[in-house]
Nucleic acid binder design. Structure first.
Lengths: 145, 145
DNA sequence: CCAATATAGTTCGATCGTAGGACTACTTCA
DNA sequence: TGAAGTAGTCCTACGATCGAACTATATTGG
């Protein structure tokens, strides 16, 4: 077995988790939400978030975010409301339907973390998280989140 | 700052590395290779690899792999040769042009690893790698690689 | 040996994700 | 108030993705 780059090892594990979460959603009936869409949804704050902020958080262009929100809106997961603070802007907000779906993803996330901790042991899992949090300081372009 | 899921922390760091490597390639003149294509290329063995194996390694459908190889072939990075062991199959092989480009990616990879180690310290970097390698045991569907 | 079945790869067609450029509406600031 | 900046959208184009159907070759049971 070759010595894989650290970043590739991270990619393997994170893709695994993404697939699991995605699959859990689908089994719960969320057949019409794609991965890119769910990544955008993950960036929506409780009180709604501007489209340009969502684009920034997901690291995609505004036009892409517009397209994704269009589809999410048509499927009934988000709505666009005027931003009272700025007439040009609109806030993207989760609908009740989306709020109902979120716990599914969170539960699967928790399940995965527990499995990982069981495999690594509490100490190693803690070290893993510590290192990843530190790494974020030099790899995340949007730390303000 | 919220407590992000471990898998998301991994995603952030691995995406950063991917972007860096991709950018390094582009600065070195590899303007015509996309990210999906390079992920496919990464799965090619020195003696050539069957398309279906590449698809499996990259976790994409055969049709997708066909399309990617088509583009890579047109750009002169890979070639298809008959598989002497099976008349139905063909081996996808790197061309000299691709072989010449590989060191660029590897060098950037090495640079990133060094930066991470400098930020985390040798011990924590070692712990990070150890945990990730262990995690691979339960998250990588293609460990035989 | 051959017919049935399986496998490797391709083609077709559809959909999603992505972004550059140009545009409209609104805001900010000198 | 007018010029410059910003939020979001529309148009257009292309890459990635895959289900379904197809061709060519291989394998296998009788």
């Amino acid at each position: 077995m070759r010595d894989l780059p650290t970043s590739l090892l991270m990619f393997i594990a994170s893709r695994y988790a993404q697939n699991r979460i995605f699959e859990a959603g689908r089994e719960a009936g969320l057949t019409d939400v794609t991965f890119a869409q769910s990544r955008l949804v993950a960036g929506i704050d409780p009180d709604g978030t501007r489209l340009s902020v969502l684009a920034e958080r997901a690291q995609i262009a505004k036009q892409t975010a517009t397209a994704l929100v269009d589809k999410l809106e048509r499927a009934g997961y988000v709505e666009r409301v005027p931003d009272p603070a700025d007439g040009r802007a609109r806030l993207v907000r989760l609908t009740a339907r989306a709020e109902a779906a979120l716990p599914i993803a969170r539960a699967e996330e928790t399940r995965i973390e527990r499995e990982w901790e069981a495999h690594l042991g509490t100490e190693r899992m803690g070290q893993l998280r510590e290192a990843l949090v530190m790494l974020r300081e030099i790899t995340d372009p949007y730390l303000e989140r």
